[in-house]
Simulated assay, not measured.
Amino acid sequence: MNISTLKSKPHYPILDGLRGVAALMVVAFHIFEAHATSHLDQIINHGYLAVDFFFLLSGFVIGYAYDDRWETMSIGNFFKRRLIRLQPMVIMGMIIGALLFYFQDSVLWPTIHDVPVWKMLLVMFIGFTLIPVPPSLDIRGWTELHPLNGPGWSLFYEYIANILYALFVRKFSKTALSILVFLAGCALIHLAVTSPNGDIIGGWSLEPTQIHIGFARMMYPFFAGLLLFRMGKLIHVKNAFFWCSLLVIITLAMPRIGGSEHLWLNGIYDSAVVILFFPLIIFLAASGAITSKFSSRICKFFGDISYPIYITHYPIIYIYTGWVADHKIPFSEAFPVSILVLVSCVALAYICLKLYDIPVRQWINKKTA
Protein backbone atom coordinates (compact mmCIF):
# COMPACT_ATOMS: atom_id res chain seq x y z
CA MET A 1 0.00 0.00 0.00
CA ASN A 2 1.18 3.52 -0.82
CA ILE A 3 1.74 5.73 2.20
CA SER A 4 -0.05 8.62 0.53
CA THR A 5 -3.35 6.73 0.89
CA LEU A 6 -3.09 7.15 4.65
CA LYS A 7 -4.57 10.61 5.12
CA SER A 8 -3.54 12.56 8.20
CA LYS A 9 -6.19 12.73 10.89
CA PRO A 10 -7.28 16.06 12.37
CA HIS A 11 -4.93 17.20 15.11
CA TYR A 12 -5.78 17.90 18.72
CA PRO A 13 -5.18 21.67 18.47
CA ILE A 14 -4.73 22.20 22.20
CA LEU A 15 -2.11 19.44 22.38
CA ASP A 16 -0.30 21.11 19.47
CA GLY A 17 -0.38 24.40 21.35
CA LEU A 18 0.92 22.82 24.55
CA ARG A 19 3.81 21.31 22.64
CA GLY A 20 4.79 24.82 21.60
CA VAL A 21 4.46 26.15 25.15
CA ALA A 22 6.75 23.39 26.42
CA ALA A 23 9.26 24.00 23.58
CA LEU A 24 9.49 27.70 24.48
CA MET A 25 10.02 26.72 28.11
CA VAL A 26 12.91 24.51 27.00
CA VAL A 27 14.58 27.47 25.28
CA ALA A 28 14.09 29.63 28.38
CA PHE A 29 15.43 26.80 30.57
CA HIS A 30 18.60 26.58 28.51
CA ILE A 31 19.06 30.36 28.57
CA PHE A 32 18.84 30.43 32.37
CA GLU A 33 21.06 27.34 32.58
CA ALA A 34 23.94 29.42 31.23
CA HIS A 35 23.76 31.59 34.38
CA ALA A 36 23.17 28.90 37.01
CA THR A 37 25.94 27.60 39.26
CA SER A 38 24.09 24.28 39.52
CA HIS A 39 20.62 22.87 39.03
CA LEU A 40 19.88 23.83 42.63
CA ASP A 41 19.70 27.55 41.89
CA GLN A 42 18.52 27.58 38.30
CA ILE A 43 15.48 29.60 37.28
CA ILE A 44 12.80 27.58 35.43
CA ASN A 45 14.30 24.79 37.44
CA HIS A 46 12.41 21.84 36.03
CA GLY A 47 12.50 22.79 32.37
CA TYR A 48 14.26 19.51 31.63
CA LEU A 49 10.96 17.71 32.27
CA ALA A 50 9.62 19.14 29.02
CA VAL A 51 11.37 16.23 27.27
CA ASP A 52 9.28 13.79 29.28
CA PHE A 53 6.18 15.82 28.43
CA PHE A 54 7.08 15.51 24.73
CA PHE A 55 7.42 11.74 25.09
CA LEU A 56 3.99 11.53 26.74
CA LEU A 57 2.44 13.67 24.01
CA SER A 58 4.08 11.50 21.35
CA GLY A 59 2.68 8.30 22.81
CA PHE A 60 -0.83 9.77 22.95
CA VAL A 61 -0.66 11.13 19.40
CA ILE A 62 0.86 7.93 17.98
CA GLY A 63 -2.01 5.95 19.45
CA TYR A 64 -4.55 8.38 18.02
CA ALA A 65 -2.93 8.48 14.58
CA TYR A 66 -2.08 4.81 14.05
CA ASP A 67 -3.79 2.40 16.46
CA ASP A 68 -6.76 1.83 14.16
CA ARG A 69 -4.75 1.59 10.93
CA TRP A 70 -2.77 -1.59 11.29
CA GLU A 71 -5.18 -3.69 9.24
CA THR A 72 -4.36 -1.55 6.18
CA MET A 73 -0.89 -0.22 7.06
CA SER A 74 2.40 -2.12 7.01
CA ILE A 75 5.23 -1.62 9.48
CA GLY A 76 7.35 -0.27 6.64
CA ASN A 77 4.73 2.36 5.81
CA PHE A 78 4.56 3.39 9.47
CA PHE A 79 8.32 3.89 9.59
CA LYS A 80 8.23 5.86 6.33
CA ARG A 81 5.61 8.22 7.73
CA ARG A 82 7.55 8.77 10.93
CA LEU A 83 10.80 9.37 9.03
CA ILE A 84 9.11 11.87 6.72
CA ARG A 85 7.68 13.70 9.72
CA LEU A 86 10.82 13.81 11.86
CA GLN A 87 13.95 13.31 9.79
CA PRO A 88 14.07 16.48 7.65
CA MET A 89 14.36 18.68 10.74
CA VAL A 90 16.87 16.30 12.31
CA ILE A 91 19.07 16.93 9.28
CA MET A 92 18.49 20.69 9.41
CA GLY A 93 19.35 20.77 13.12
CA MET A 94 22.68 19.09 12.42
CA ILE A 95 23.42 21.47 9.52
CA ILE A 96 22.74 24.49 11.73
CA GLY A 97 24.94 22.96 14.42
CA ALA A 98 27.75 22.55 11.87
CA LEU A 99 27.37 26.10 10.52
CA LEU A 100 27.60 27.60 14.01
CA PHE A 101 30.16 25.19 15.47
CA TYR A 102 33.26 27.34 15.00
CA PHE A 103 31.45 30.37 16.44
CA GLN A 104 31.12 28.52 19.76
CA ASP A 105 34.77 28.69 20.81
CA SER A 106 34.79 29.32 24.57
CA VAL A 107 36.48 28.48 27.83
CA LEU A 108 33.85 25.75 28.05
CA TRP A 109 35.10 24.15 24.81
CA PRO A 110 38.65 25.49 24.37
CA THR A 111 39.64 23.01 21.67
CA ILE A 112 36.82 23.74 19.20
CA HIS A 113 39.14 25.74 16.94
CA ASP A 114 41.46 22.72 16.78
CA VAL A 115 38.78 20.40 15.36
CA PRO A 116 39.49 19.80 11.65
CA VAL A 117 36.65 20.58 9.27
CA TRP A 118 36.58 17.02 7.93
CA LYS A 119 35.97 15.68 11.43
CA MET A 120 33.19 18.17 12.12
CA LEU A 121 31.55 17.28 8.80
CA LEU A 122 31.83 13.57 9.60
CA VAL A 123 30.01 14.19 12.89
CA MET A 124 27.36 16.13 10.97
CA PHE A 125 26.77 13.34 8.46
CA ILE A 126 26.56 10.75 11.23
CA GLY A 127 24.15 13.09 13.00
CA PHE A 128 21.88 13.01 9.95
CA THR A 129 21.18 9.36 10.80
CA LEU A 130 20.80 9.98 14.58
CA ILE A 131 23.31 7.17 15.17
CA PRO A 132 25.27 8.17 18.30
CA VAL A 133 28.85 9.17 17.61
CA PRO A 134 31.64 7.21 19.36
CA PRO A 135 33.80 8.89 22.04
CA SER A 136 36.55 9.39 19.46
CA LEU A 137 34.26 11.86 17.65
CA ASP A 138 33.25 13.83 20.74
CA ILE A 139 34.39 17.11 19.20
CA ARG A 140 32.87 19.26 21.96
CA GLY A 141 33.91 17.35 25.05
CA TRP A 142 30.49 17.07 26.69
CA THR A 143 30.09 13.35 25.84
CA GLU A 144 26.91 14.09 23.86
CA LEU A 145 25.39 11.56 21.48
CA HIS A 146 25.32 14.40 18.94
CA PRO A 147 27.95 17.06 19.69
CA LEU A 148 26.69 19.48 17.02
CA ASN A 149 23.13 19.49 18.34
CA GLY A 150 22.69 18.07 21.82
CA PRO A 151 18.86 17.67 21.84
CA GLY A 152 19.19 15.06 19.10
CA TRP A 153 19.51 12.53 21.91
CA SER A 154 15.78 12.67 22.66
CA LEU A 155 14.92 12.08 18.99
CA PHE A 156 17.15 8.99 19.14
CA TYR A 157 14.98 7.62 21.96
CA GLU A 158 11.82 8.81 20.20
CA TYR A 159 12.75 6.57 17.27
CA ILE A 160 13.38 3.65 19.62
CA ALA A 161 9.93 4.19 21.14
CA ASN A 162 8.37 4.21 17.66
CA ILE A 163 10.17 0.98 16.78
CA LEU A 164 9.01 -0.73 19.98
CA TYR A 165 5.45 0.43 19.32
CA ALA A 166 5.38 -0.79 15.72
CA LEU A 167 7.03 -4.14 16.33
CA PHE A 168 5.49 -5.13 19.65
CA VAL A 169 3.49 -2.75 21.82
CA ARG A 170 0.79 -1.93 19.26
CA LYS A 171 -0.38 -5.54 19.70
CA PHE A 172 -0.60 -5.27 23.51
CA SER A 173 -3.98 -5.47 25.18
CA LYS A 174 -4.86 -2.73 27.66
CA THR A 175 -3.91 -5.09 30.47
CA ALA A 176 -0.51 -5.89 29.01
CA LEU A 177 0.11 -2.23 28.24
CA SER A 178 -0.92 -1.29 31.79
CA ILE A 179 1.60 -3.75 33.21
CA LEU A 180 4.34 -2.33 30.99
CA VAL A 181 3.47 1.21 32.04
CA PHE A 182 3.39 0.22 35.73
CA LEU A 183 6.82 -1.40 35.56
CA ALA A 184 8.23 1.54 33.60
CA GLY A 185 6.77 3.90 36.22
CA CYS A 186 8.48 1.95 39.00
CA ALA A 187 11.77 2.18 37.12
CA LEU A 188 11.32 5.92 36.68
CA ILE A 189 10.59 6.45 40.38
CA HIS A 190 13.64 4.39 41.34
CA LEU A 191 15.81 6.45 39.00
CA ALA A 192 14.48 9.76 40.31
CA VAL A 193 14.70 8.94 44.02
CA THR A 194 18.11 7.25 43.93
CA SER A 195 19.72 9.69 41.50
CA PRO A 196 22.88 11.26 42.96
CA ASN A 197 21.58 14.63 41.78
CA GLY A 198 17.99 14.16 42.88
CA ASP A 199 16.48 14.43 39.42
CA ILE A 200 16.05 12.59 36.12
CA ILE A 201 18.30 14.87 34.11
CA GLY A 202 20.36 12.99 31.54
CA GLY A 203 20.16 10.55 28.68
CA TRP A 204 22.42 12.29 26.18
CA SER A 205 25.61 10.24 26.58
CA LEU A 206 26.67 6.85 25.27
CA GLU A 207 27.59 5.24 28.58
CA PRO A 208 25.65 2.80 30.78
CA THR A 209 24.31 5.23 33.39
CA GLN A 210 23.14 7.72 30.80
CA ILE A 211 21.62 5.02 28.59
CA HIS A 212 19.70 3.81 31.64
CA ILE A 213 18.40 7.36 32.19
CA GLY A 214 17.45 7.72 28.54
CA PHE A 215 15.41 4.52 28.47
CA ALA A 216 13.77 5.24 31.84
CA ARG A 217 12.75 8.72 30.68
CA MET A 218 11.33 7.38 27.42
CA MET A 219 9.59 4.15 28.43
CA TYR A 220 7.11 5.40 30.98
CA PRO A 221 5.86 8.64 29.38
CA PHE A 222 5.65 7.35 25.81
CA PHE A 223 3.70 4.23 26.64
CA ALA A 224 1.68 5.98 29.35
CA GLY A 225 0.61 8.41 26.64
CA LEU A 226 -0.41 5.49 24.46
CA LEU A 227 -2.35 3.94 27.35
CA LEU A 228 -4.00 7.28 28.11
CA PHE A 229 -5.29 7.46 24.54
CA ARG A 230 -6.62 3.91 24.68
CA MET A 231 -8.46 4.61 27.93
CA GLY A 232 -10.71 7.16 26.19
CA LYS A 233 -13.57 8.63 28.27
CA LEU A 234 -12.67 12.28 27.72
CA ILE A 235 -14.70 15.02 29.38
CA HIS A 236 -15.46 18.55 28.22
CA VAL A 237 -13.17 21.19 29.74
CA LYS A 238 -13.68 24.92 29.26
CA ASN A 239 -10.68 27.16 28.53
CA ALA A 240 -8.51 24.04 28.43
CA PHE A 241 -5.63 25.63 26.51
CA PHE A 242 -5.24 28.45 29.05
CA TRP A 243 -5.43 26.24 32.12
CA CYS A 244 -3.26 23.47 30.69
CA SER A 245 -0.64 25.96 29.49
CA LEU A 246 -0.57 27.49 32.97
CA LEU A 247 -0.10 24.04 34.52
CA VAL A 248 2.75 23.22 32.13
CA ILE A 249 4.48 26.53 32.92
CA ILE A 250 4.06 26.08 36.67
CA THR A 251 5.34 22.50 36.75
CA LEU A 252 8.39 23.36 34.63
CA ALA A 253 9.17 26.63 36.45
CA MET A 254 8.81 25.16 39.94
CA PRO A 255 11.91 25.89 42.10
CA ARG A 256 14.09 23.04 43.26
CA ILE A 257 12.44 20.87 45.90
CA GLY A 258 14.36 19.81 49.03
CA GLY A 259 17.60 21.67 48.35
CA SER A 260 21.00 19.99 48.65
CA GLU A 261 20.09 18.37 51.98
CA HIS A 262 17.16 16.30 50.70
CA LEU A 263 17.84 15.58 47.05
CA TRP A 264 15.40 12.68 47.03
CA LEU A 265 12.49 15.10 47.54
CA ASN A 266 13.14 16.61 44.15
CA GLY A 267 13.19 13.08 42.75
CA ILE A 268 9.73 12.59 44.21
CA TYR A 269 8.61 15.80 42.52
CA ASP A 270 10.02 14.70 39.15
CA SER A 271 8.27 11.36 39.48
CA ALA A 272 4.95 12.92 40.47
CA VAL A 273 5.04 15.37 37.58
CA VAL A 274 5.83 12.78 34.92
CA ILE A 275 3.65 9.98 36.28
CA LEU A 276 0.62 11.97 37.49
CA PHE A 277 0.56 15.64 36.53
CA PHE A 278 1.58 15.38 32.86
CA PRO A 279 -1.01 12.67 32.06
CA LEU A 280 -3.64 14.80 33.80
CA ILE A 281 -2.65 17.85 31.74
CA ILE A 282 -2.82 15.90 28.49
CA PHE A 283 -6.14 14.35 29.48
CA LEU A 284 -7.60 17.81 30.17
CA ALA A 285 -6.11 19.25 26.99
CA ALA A 286 -7.43 16.43 24.82
CA SER A 287 -10.84 16.96 26.43
CA GLY A 288 -10.94 20.66 25.59
CA ALA A 289 -12.06 22.51 22.51
CA ILE A 290 -10.93 25.71 20.81
CA THR A 291 -13.75 28.26 20.84
CA SER A 292 -12.18 31.34 19.22
CA LYS A 293 -10.19 32.11 16.08
CA PHE A 294 -7.47 33.76 18.15
CA SER A 295 -6.95 30.67 20.29
CA SER A 296 -6.97 28.52 17.18
CA ARG A 297 -4.26 30.62 15.57
CA ILE A 298 -2.13 30.62 18.71
CA CYS A 299 -2.37 26.85 19.05
CA LYS A 300 -1.56 26.35 15.38
CA PHE A 301 1.45 28.67 15.49
CA PHE A 302 2.79 27.12 18.68
CA GLY A 303 2.21 23.63 17.33
CA ASP A 304 3.87 24.44 14.00
CA ILE A 305 7.07 25.81 15.54
CA SER A 306 7.28 23.38 18.47
CA TYR A 307 9.37 20.69 16.81
CA PRO A 308 11.51 23.06 14.68
CA ILE A 309 12.36 25.25 17.67
CA TYR A 310 13.26 22.26 19.82
CA ILE A 311 15.57 20.70 17.25
CA THR A 312 17.26 23.92 16.05
CA HIS A 313 17.64 26.17 19.12
CA TYR A 314 20.59 24.55 20.86
CA PRO A 315 23.38 25.60 18.47
CA ILE A 316 22.39 29.20 19.31
CA ILE A 317 22.33 28.31 23.01
CA TYR A 318 25.89 26.97 22.73
CA ILE A 319 27.01 30.42 21.55
CA TYR A 320 25.08 32.21 24.29
CA THR A 321 26.35 29.84 27.00
CA GLY A 322 29.94 30.26 25.83
CA TRP A 323 29.59 34.06 25.77
CA VAL A 324 28.21 34.11 29.32
CA ALA A 325 30.98 31.81 30.58
CA ASP A 326 33.77 33.77 28.88
CA HIS A 327 32.68 37.14 30.26
CA LYS A 328 31.02 35.98 33.51
CA ILE A 329 27.92 38.00 32.72
CA PRO A 330 25.01 37.91 35.22
CA PHE A 331 21.53 37.51 33.85
CA SER A 332 20.58 41.06 34.83
CA GLU A 333 23.15 42.36 32.35
CA ALA A 334 22.56 39.67 29.75
CA PHE A 335 18.79 40.13 29.73
CA PRO A 336 18.59 42.07 26.41
CA VAL A 337 20.78 39.48 24.72
CA SER A 338 18.75 36.63 26.20
CA ILE A 339 15.59 38.14 24.72
CA LEU A 340 17.39 38.39 21.37
CA VAL A 341 18.38 34.73 21.68
CA LEU A 342 14.78 33.69 22.39
CA VAL A 343 13.44 35.73 19.47
CA SER A 344 16.20 34.39 17.20
CA CYS A 345 15.34 30.80 18.11
CA VAL A 346 11.67 31.38 17.29
CA ALA A 347 12.52 33.16 14.04
CA LEU A 348 14.96 30.44 12.97
CA ALA A 349 12.38 27.75 13.71
CA TYR A 350 9.71 29.55 11.71
CA ILE A 351 12.02 30.10 8.74
CA CYS A 352 13.07 26.44 8.77
CA LEU A 353 9.43 25.38 8.98
CA LYS A 354 8.21 27.49 6.09
CA LEU A 355 11.19 27.39 3.73
CA TYR A 356 12.46 23.88 4.41
CA ASP A 357 10.44 21.47 6.54
CA ILE A 358 7.00 21.85 4.95
CA PRO A 359 8.28 21.99 1.32
CA VAL A 360 10.61 19.03 1.82
CA ARG A 361 7.92 16.86 3.41
CA GLN A 362 5.48 17.80 0.66
CA TRP A 363 8.09 16.93 -1.97
CA ILE A 364 8.84 13.56 -0.36
CA ASN A 365 5.14 12.74 -0.05
CA LYS A 366 4.67 13.64 -3.71
CA LYS A 367 7.58 11.43 -4.75
CA THR A 368 6.22 8.50 -2.76
CA ALA A 369 2.65 8.97 -4.04
Rank of each mutant, 00 (worst) to 15 (best):
S58N: 14
I112G: 13
R85F: 03
H30T: 01
K367W: 06
Y48D: 02
A192D: 02
V133L: 10
K233D: 12
F29L: 06
A192M: 01
I235L: 15
V61G: 09
T194S: 04
K367N: 03
I31N: 00
V181A: 10
W70R: 10
W118D: 11
P308Q: 01
R361A: 00
V343Y: 07
C352I: 08
W243M: 13
M219H: 08
I316T: 08
I31L: 05
V90T: 13
Y157S: 10
F229C: 07
R361Q: 12
S195R: 04
P10W: 12
A253Y: 07
S136C: 06
G322D: 05
E207S: 07
N239A: 08
T72A: 13
A98R: 06
W363S: 13
I281E: 00
L228D: 03
G47C: 03
K80P: 02
S74R: 14
S344A: 14
D105E: 15
V273H: 01
S332M: 10
K367I: 05
R85S: 05
L340S: 13
I200P: 02
G267Y: 03
L348I: 14
G47V: 05
C352W: 03
K7V: 14
R140Y: 12
C299N: 08
L191A: 02
L265F: 09
Y310Q: 02
A289P: 07
T321F: 07
L18V: 09
P255H: 11
S296R: 10
L183W: 03
P116E: 06
A98L: 11
Q104H: 12
L234N: 15
W204Q: 10
P116S: 09
V61N: 10
I290W: 00
V193Y: 01
I257K: 03
Y64G: 11
L56H: 04
N365G: 11
G127H: 04
G198T: 03
P110K: 15
H39I: 09
I290A: 01
V337F: 12
F125A: 10
L183F: 14
I319L: 15
I316D: 04
C352H: 04
E71H: 14
R297K: 10
S245R: 06
H11C: 14
F125E: 04
N2G: 09
A347H: 09
G288I: 12
F278V: 04
T251W: 04
P110N: 15
A176F: 15
S154P: 04
G150Y: 08
H46D: 05
S296G: 13
V337A: 11
P336D: 00
F79P: 06
C299Y: 01
C244M: 08
P196G: 00
S136F: 00
A325N: 12
I235R: 15
W363F: 14
L263D: 00
I189C: 03
D304V: 12
A286K: 11
L177H: 03
D105N: 15
L280F: 11
Q104M: 14
Y350S: 15
N77Q: 15
P110D: 15
F103W: 12
E207V: 09
P336K: 02
Y157D: 00
